[in-house]
Design a protein around this nucleic acid. Structure first.
Lengths: 127, 127
DNA sequence: AAATACTATATGCGTTATGCACATAGAGGA
DNA sequence: TCCTCTATGTGCATAACGCATATAGTATTT
């Protein structure tokens, strides 16, 4: 019996790609361009050091190649042109799946945190 | 002004390494060997598909190289020998730092989940 | 007019973590 | 004998990432 791979996974790196989900959520709300997504993420509390603009732009291009988003250039009355991204139907499906994964992952993280806090507390008491 | 790197980060891949933290928490409790750690992780709800035994064993070797854990072989009265790992002082420090990172990461994940749930709900209502 | 800062997108390079397949091996039971 | 469980590891391919760097338009300051 062959084991099925995770749905929102490339062959490698099944566990990460949090930035991709964050991007999809932003675009699920409304269309946006790279720089604007970056600003929105910061407003959402996604710490600036945690992601990298080149990674962001590259993720967007990759996601377009995979059919998760679409893009078109928009002229700006002030500043350079913007490549505006919109979420595609495949992206919405991918996002829904990812949200389920994130919920499980949050529970795992919570488990590790609570386990550590419990151990640290009991070590202090027993000291 | 140069930006300081994250403390528990290799130069690359600053965001993942969850398995490593999980291993450190298990060893923070008490010494254990690879296969036993794998069993403990499953008991903790770390889903089997989410990690890979070769990754686990390789992580342990890497962590020993980095001085986060120490190991010694233990003869078994039944079954093959076991390489038993113990957490080192550097590993305890690393773990404490990682827990802080995990808490921030959990908050980010929660943010994304709530944002999605909110958007999905309002779309259903507005439909 | 020049310099600076902000907005905006992207590529090249090197490294690392990872998944998958596979190898090895002892012990116990069908 | 074969299978299963226990137990630890290596080789290979590659995706994802961080950092440095390039490019360019606009706005503000000097």
């Amino acid at each position: 019996m062959k084991k099925e791979g995770f749905f929102c996974a490339s062959k490698h790196h099944k566990t990460e790609k949090f930035l991709e989900v964050a991007i999809l959520v932003v675009l699920f709300d409304k269309e946006n361009y790279g720089y604007g997504i970056s600003e929105t993420l910061k407003e959402m509390g996604y710490e600036e050091e945690s992601f990298n603009t080149s990674t962001l732009y590259r993720s967007l291009r990759r996601m377009e190649q995979q059919g998760l988003v679409t893009s078109d250039w928009r002229e700006s009355h002030q500043g350079p042109r913007k490549r505006v991204y919109s979420i595609a139907e495949a992206g919405r499906v991918e996002l829904e799946n990812w949200i389920q994964v994130l919920k499980r992952r949050r529970n795992m993280i919570d488990g590790v945190i609570h386990r550590f806090d419990g151990l640290a507390r009991s070590m202090k008491e027993g000291e």
